[in-house]
Structures are given as C-alpha cells and as structure tokens.
Write a protein that binds this DNA or RNA. Structure first.
Lengths: 133, 133
DNA sequence: GAATTCAGTTTACAACTGTAATCGTATCAT
DNA sequence: ATGATACGATTACAGTTGTAAACTGAATTC
C-alpha cells in the first residue's frame, strides 16, 4: 500500500443532520434552486425563517453535499450527494445499530408496531419475488 | 377539553442518544448491572472509560430510561425503557423521515445497497408469510 | 476510629445542531 | 451616481452529545 500522500481522501464523509436533510429533500425534488425557492418549499412546513435555510445551505456546502453556481447576484444550489446514497447509508446505519445488521428484525419490529400497511406488504412481496429471480 | 392542569404529562419523551443506546443494549442483555459491569461489557469495544459510562448512566436516569436500586454503596441499574419501544420508535422515525412513512421503499433501498444477505431474504419471506396468516 | 477507597455527582469542554440576526457588498432602480 | 435592496457570509447563542476529570461522602480496612 502507498504510504505518504495516502491520507488524501481520508475525509470521513460528514453526516448530514436532520434539518439539513430537509433542505436536501427540496433539492432532490427539483434543482437547481435558489435559497428563496428552497425556503418556499420548506419554511412554512418547518416553521423556519429564510435565514435558517441559508445557514443550512452553507453548512451543506461545507460538507460538500451541495454545490453552488453563481447566477447574477445569487446562487443556484444543486445537490452533490445523491438521495439514494443518503437513504442507503442512513438505513444501513440503523439496521447495524439496532438490529446487528440484520434486516428482517427491522421489519418484524415495524410489523409489531403496526407500521406496515397492506400496501407495504404487497410491495415487499413483489420485491422479494423480483430479488429471487 | 380540560384547560389548566392539563399540561401535566406533556413531557416529550427525551431521545436516547447513540452512546446512551449502547449502554441500554448492555442492560437489555442482562440486568440489573452495576456501572462497572456495564463498563466491562462496553468500554473496550467502544474505547470508553468508566467515567464515560457513569455519565451516560446518569443522563439515562434523568431521561427516565433506567432506574437505580441502591445496593450497599453502589447502584444497580435496570432498564425502564423497553428495547422494543426504542427500536420501534427509532425505526418508525427513520421510515417517516426518509421514506414518507412507507416501509417498502426502505426495503427496496436496503436491497439496492446490497445490505440484504441470503439469510435476510429467507427471514423476510418467512416473516411475510407469517404476517399473512 | 482514622485512612483509604470506591461509588455516584458535579463540573468541563469542545463539536455539532437548530435557529436565527447582523454585516458587507454587489446590483437595481431612479 | 446614489440610495435602497437583496444576497451570501459572518457571528451568535443555547441545547445536546461525546468524552472525561475532579469532587464528595460513605464504606471498608487496619
């Protein structure tokens, strides 16, 4: 293995917080967006001010989860982090942390707390059949 | 609806943090335990000192997730929060936050990120058959 | 009974979060 | 040009979390 100059890319990928995730959701839905447009999407729902969205955006830029393109005097924000990467790693984290990495107990738990709809069951059955092919 | 004196019981149930959860796991496995016994279970794995475990335990007491019984000069700690309550609410939180409350997409996501073992699939099939009965 | 030890309690302190308000400046309108 | 605006950047500040060291008082030991 290479020695020095190997510590490049050693950046532990910086968790995205819940509030930041809300902003990411808006961008995953549609992008690029301005800070104001994002606020229009989320501010009333979360009872946030525009300033809050701006703070979250700058933190997301630092975490390299979004990218900015100047557009006149403002910025257009585009997601760099992909939604499926985020949901994938968060889901796996939970399964690891709470269920020792095994997925079935998670769904057993959801079933037990009545978090599974008829629809969920059907979709999961279909998916399983698909995975079996 | 009743007016004053209604704000009793308004205690939002205080999240358990990840580090605290590690301590809970030890107690769910076997209880009651002393702080030292808990440390024996988790300290080396998490690279913690006994002091850290003690801090986490006192926070868990404040959050009413564990209870203490004096035993001579030390305490025996017993979980009050049940494991399934914790895993249930954490799981539902994740499903709500990331997948709009639907479980099937979570399953799809785990499949896509190759987080499902052959064993998981088999268990899932069994679980779904069970839920169908 | 005095010294030591050991347990919980209190205090510490930096990083991360949630939630903004304020500042500085590049543009837009007049 | 000039003053008002509208941006992003900087600063703020309290609460939570991770990680522990210091303190205090009771129990054990000699």
């Amino acid at each position: 293995m290479p020695a020095a100059s190997d510590d490049i890319r050693n950046t532990a990928p910086d968790r995205i917080s819940e509030a930041e995730h809300t902003v990411m959701e808006a961008l995953w839905q549609r992008s690029p967006l301005t800070a104001l447009e994002i606020c229009e999407e989320v501010c009333s729902r979360r009872d946030w001010s525009l300033a809050t969205v701006k703070t979250l955006l700058s933190r997301l830029v630092v975490k390299q989860a979004v990218e900015t393109k100047p557009d006149g005097r403002r910025f257009l924000y585009t997601p760099l982090l992909e939604k499926s990467d985020y949901t994938g790693s968060e889901s796996r984290r939970l399964v690891d942390r709470l269920f020792g990495g095994r997925a079935a107990p998670l769904f057993a738990q959801l079933a037990e707390s009545e978090a599974l709809t008829e629809n969920d069951l059907a979709e999961m059955e279909a998916l399983l059949r698909e995975l079996r092919k």
